[in-house]
């Protein structure tokens, strides 16, 4: 058997980290799109929409992501298709991210003063016009820091997809450990790579939050 140098280990892990990054991007963007659709249903005036989204959020926030991954993996399989791990991972992470993002954004929209809705409605604007011209531009500013902060959760969430067999950074860590018998080094490096992916996101979320607060105080 070939000997692995630390460089070999790191190279293999970094190659696998590409998949972590890709899956995170897909989940975050896909989750954002689904989340935005859910947001409109949640804060709309319909009867079914809000309660459906409430139940959806409760379901995804009240169950482990790992279970959602298993259910996506075996649930999609019930339709007779051979489900590749990446598909189940993507579907589960998108639906999971959507639940959290929709809830974050709902908080932002609800923090917009009641009078803004009333004022725009007195100008004869419809629901979509109010959202487009009055509510969303203001809510978006508040939404940026927590949204960036949530992206950290998405990156960390992708680690669980290793359990259903998607080969990303965590899975590569396990594979390399099995080949090198150096779990301390390998998992240490894996943690370090995750840290390098997540920390800039956490930090920028904090900085954005501080900036936003400063802007808020100057009003």
């Amino acid at each position: 058997m070939d000997e692995f140098t630390t460089w070999d280990i790191l190279r293999n892990l970094l190659l696998a980290a590409r998949w972590t990054v890709l899956l995170s991007l897909v989940s975050f963007i896909g989750g954002g799109l689904v989340g935005a659709a859910l947001l409109f249903a949640r804060i709309g005036s319909g009867r079914i929409g809000p309660s459906f989204v409430k139940a959806y959020v409760e379901l995804f926030q009240g169950t482990p992501l790992l279970m959602q991954l298993f259910l996506a993996f075996f649930g999609l399989g019930l339709f007779g298709i051979d489900v590749p791990a990446w598909l189940a991972a993507g579907v589960a992470l998108i639906l999971w991210s959507a639940a959290f993002l929709t809830e974050i954004w709902r908080g932002c929209v609800e923090s917009i003063a009641r009078g803004q809705w009333e004022a725009s409605s007195s100008l004869g604007m419809g629901y979509l016009q109010q959202m487009r011209h009055v509510i969303l531009p203001q809510a978006l500013r508040i939404a940026v820091p927590p949204t960036v902060g949530f992206s950290v959760q998405v990156v960390k969430g992708t680690a669980l997809t290793s359990i259903i067999g998607f080969v990303e950074l965590s899975k590569a860590g396990t594979i390399v450990t099995n080949a090198t018998f150096e779990p301390f080094t390998v998992y240490g490096l894996v943690a370090l790579i995750y840290f390098c992916l997540c920390w800039p996101l956490s930090k920028s979320s904090q900085i954005l939050e501080r900036k936003l607060n400063v802007a808020h105080r100057n009003h």
Partner: peptide, 23 residues
Amino acid sequence: VELIRNTPFLIQLFFIFFGLPAL
């Protein structure tokens, strides 16, 4: 705090269970 909050729980678990015995 930063180290824990920016790494996945699964990796923390693996590091403790598989990694620490090396020490």
